[in-house]
Design a protein around this nucleic acid. Structure first.
Lengths: 216, 216
DNA sequence: GTCTATAGAAGGATAGAC
DNA sequence: GTCTATCCTTCTATAGAC
């Protein structure tokens, strides 16, 4: 997931051979599959090993422990996970930037639902393994972008809103379709086979009306 | 949680004595605490027993298995969980009814965050134990209320929206504050000690602007 | 009804042959 | 690097005394 063998600073164990790279990838993939479904405590090493096509001891040849796999997985994915927000451009058109951010997040839910559920499980279960990342990296990024949004609202480019809660609402609304996918699909059964086209239309309407500056 | 000793149909084991009632309540309370934090697979019986102030074997005197505790808990809470939506009154003022529903759901998140996380864990982990309830009870209720909302939109009492996704969005936005409470609080640290007052203001603005009929 | 003790299965992790 | 075998811990669940 982030196994660049060259220019490795030594922070994570650098994989040397092709086969190691391949196996480490397979393990990360399997770990994502299992951890995203059951959370850390509910996940079982045998399941990860089996999904990765390895024996349990072989799995533990690559990583020292269950916790190490989990930590590596979260660390590798965190950056990708924050990219959509990082891309929010202070110089762009305010409403379009926010709508585009929402669309990127909705695409992430559609294309990477397991990643969404991995973080959902982790936070739901107390965020013990990513507390520092939330308090540091994520908080800093959110505060920075919230400041941008506040500026847009102040100069009247968008309707006045609480920037932090605006960001929360984008997370909540888009991630809901990944995290609660089972429920959404069961309820929409017989109406929409794929919830995402309607979700996009609905969320575009929602944020357009919310942010339209020409009112009150 | 639902232990009316009289007029019990025999569906769940009817508690006979005072002490049994008290202990069963304590177990349900402890089970809520633990299952909501770790999900079914991650939860441990000792933790539930300890939290309930009972020994592990004593816990299993009241319930035959871990699964039985979990099922009982979900069953008991499901009704309460759906009450806010049931209360949506087709005869009421459309915008006010939807806003009131949102407020009730937000209050549920604030006052019963563990219940929210219990269902979140369950659905996130595949909804294996409440599949039938979702496909049956919940789907029927949602479809019924969505029809009401569709009627309101058709006669122009609210702006046109997809009723199902409107309901999803109310769930997503309100439950987010319970399910992702840790993250919300960490990010708002130094700004808002209690996220709920601002959340209510923000969500009222959001749904007011979304549903305002006098536009387009 | 409640406890101590423990069976029996499953989980995480290691040893050592190949 | 990978496997078989296995250790030790933890977990669910039960037996049986009180």
């Amino acid at each position: 997931m982030n196994d660049t063998p060259s220019e490795n600073t030594g922070k994570t164990t650098p994989p040397r051979t092709r086969i190691q790279q391949k196996n480490r990838r397979a393990i990360m993939e399997a770990a994502l599959e299992v951890f995203s479904q059951y959370g850390f405590r509910g996940a079982r090493l045998d399941q990860i090993a089996q999904t990765a096509g390895l024996s349990k001891p072989n799995l533990l040849y690559y990583f020292p422990s269950k916790e190490a796999i989990h930590t590596e997985l979260l660390t590798c994915l965190m950056d990708t996970w924050l990219d959509p927000l990082r891309a929010l451009d202070p110089a762009g058109d305010p409403r379009e930037e926010i709508l585009a951010y929402m669309r990127r997040k909705l695409e992430m839910s559609r294309d990477y639902p397991r990643e969404s559920r991995l973080f959902a499980n982790e936070i739901l279960q107390g965020a013990r393994h990513i507390r520092t990342a939330i308090k540091g990296e994520l908080k800093a990024l959110v505060d920075e972008k919230a400041e941008v949004i506040r500026g847009w609202a102040e100069r009247g480019a968008i309707a006045p809103v609480n920037p932090h809660h605006l960001i929360f609402s984008i997370w909540a609304l888009t991630q809901h379709y990944a995290d609660f996918e089972v429920q959404v699909r069961l309820i929409l059964e017989g109406r929409e086979d794929d919830p995402y086209p309607e979700a996009e239309r609905y969320l575009e309407t929602l944020f357009s009306r919310l942010l339209a500056p020409e009112r009150a």
